Structure formats: C-alpha cells, structure tokens
Amino acid sequence: MSNNYLVLQTDFGLVDGAVSAMYGVAYTVSPTISIENLTHDIPPYDIWVASYRLYQTVKYWPVGTVFVSVVDPGVGSERQSVVAKTKSGHYIITPDNGSLTHISHYDGLEEVRLIDEVKSRLPHSEESHTFHGRDIYAYNGARMASGEVTFEELGSVTDVDNIQKLEITDSTLDGTIMKGSIDVLDVRFGSLWTSIPSTFMKEIDIEHGNSLQVTIYHDNKKVYQNIMKFAKSFADVNVGEPLVYVNSLVNLGVAVNQDSFSDLYNIGTGDEWKIEIRKAPKIIFD
C-alpha cells in the first residue's frame, strides 16, 4: 500500500516549466500528497544512469513510496508504460525502456503491470504525445500515492522477465583479482562508483592502507593503470592523489582527493567500462 510520498526523477532539468507542470498535475490529483525530488539532472536520454539512481535511492525511502522515473527518449512510440512493485515494497512508474534494470538485477521485482496509456492519463491530454511525464507518469503516480487507485487497479500483470533490461555484467573475484564495471559517477566530485562489492576485499585480506593496482578498460582497451592506496577516507591521501575507497552503497569507488577522476582521465560509465583491482605487487605493471 502506498504511503502518500511521491518521488520524481527526470532528465528534464529545472530550466523550464516541465517539472513544475508535473508537480501541478500531481497536486491537482491530491493536494495532500508529499512530493519530493530524487533528481532532475539525469544526463539527457541516459537510461542507464536513471536505472542506477533508482537502485541507489529507492531502498532508503519508507515502504510504499511511489517513484516516478521519466527518462524517455522513446516517448510517443510503441514503448510501454509500467508500474513495478519491488521486493522491498516500493513502487516505480516508468517507461519500459530499461529504467528498472538495476533494481530488477540487484534487489528484485515482485510484480510488474502495464499501464493503459489511453485510459489512465490526465483528462483532456489525449492529443499530446510528447509529455508523458506530466500526462501519464506524474498523474498516475499521484493517484497511487494518494490512494485513489491501487497498484492492482493501475494495470494488467505482465511477466517480470518480459520487461526491457540493459546489459549488466556481474562483478567477479578471479583469484585475487576483483573485476567489475564502472556503473556511475559521484557527479559533483567525479569519483567512479564501481559494481565491485567491498566484501571482496575481506575475502582476499586487503586492509585499509594497502596499495592496490587499478586498471580500467573501455571496450576491452586498457585506458588507465596506476597504483593507489585503499583509504578509509579521502583525508588519508594527499590532495591530488588517487585512492580506492568504500562508497555509500558499500561498493568500491575510485577517486582523486579534491579533484575529478573522471575529468582528469576521461573515464565514463556503463557496462562497456570495466575495472580490475588487485593488491599491488612490488613489481612493474604487467
């Protein structure tokens, strides 16, 4: 059951009235719901980042919270709209374009329903086909958050395995080599958030203060390699020095103290960006 919270995520930015219109529609449905922002600064059309930000955030909200995520390069096309119930008891309304990838992969989806875009939409919006964030997602998100409709009433069940998913490569521990992908940036600071769980460090007896060899690949081509400290905090290394640390999702991150690792070395994110981390031997790079 929903709990009156509606949390919005888009790639719209705040430079025009798009997000405000979503708020207005939601409050018109119910002036008593509580509307909050996850972010409106997803890079334009970047479904991968939208998916990751949901994974990063949803579990920290009360059970029953309704999320609306609108990063929708296929708006107006044949792509479908869905509402998902996660195994943690949260709800997400979003285009079926891969936005549920990370939550489905790591946390699990209990059930997914298809939203009828003809019947379940803002009244008198039938002629508009390019602002589903307002006309379908914010509208139905508010209806769910306020209790006007239930999850079950909002659409017909579809097989969880049939929804669109982006490719994810699971992290592995290959002997003493930890392998994963660079999933997303800590945007303000340019740090790299990897898919490698910090539990791997314990399995191969790596402790804070150890030196690590970090290698980064883009489309299987080596683009970066260096030795850096496994630090408990950024203050454990000098300004301008790189480090490996444990991020807020308890995965490994790579950063430069008081600079942007991503900008300095032109490192991007997504499944085509791979990273390997191992305890650094006292030898020249192999």
Rank of each mutant, 00 (worst) to 15 (best):
G17D: 14
T172G: 03
F12E: 06
L54Y: 02
T39Y: 10
I182C: 07
Y106H: 11
L14N: 15
K221E: 15
G141M: 05
T65W: 10
P281K: 14
L212P: 10
A84N: 01
L14W: 09
V246L: 00
E272R: 12
L243N: 06
P123G: 00
Y27S: 04
I182F: 07
M1L: 11
E126A: 11
E126Q: 11
V19Q: 13
Y265T: 08
S125F: 11
I168A: 07
T158E: 12
I227Y: 10
S146A: 13
K59C: 01
M178W: 09
H40T: 08
N140M: 13
F189W: 12
V223E: 03
Q258S: 14
L6V: 08
K282R: 12
Y23P: 02
L100H: 04
I47C: 01
D161S: 15
W61M: 15
R278L: 14
G240Q: 08
V157L: 10
D271K: 10
F261G: 04
Q213G: 08
L38V: 14
T130A: 02
Q164H: 13
V29K: 05
A84S: 06
K232P: 00
V29G: 09
N37P: 01
A231F: 04
D11M: 08
V112E: 04
Q225C: 08
N266L: 12
R278Q: 15
E203C: 00
H124T: 09
T194I: 12
H218D: 09
D174P: 00
F285D: 11
G270L: 07
S260I: 05
T86E: 02
S81H: 02
S2G: 05
V214H: 08
G24N: 11
T215I: 15
S104R: 10
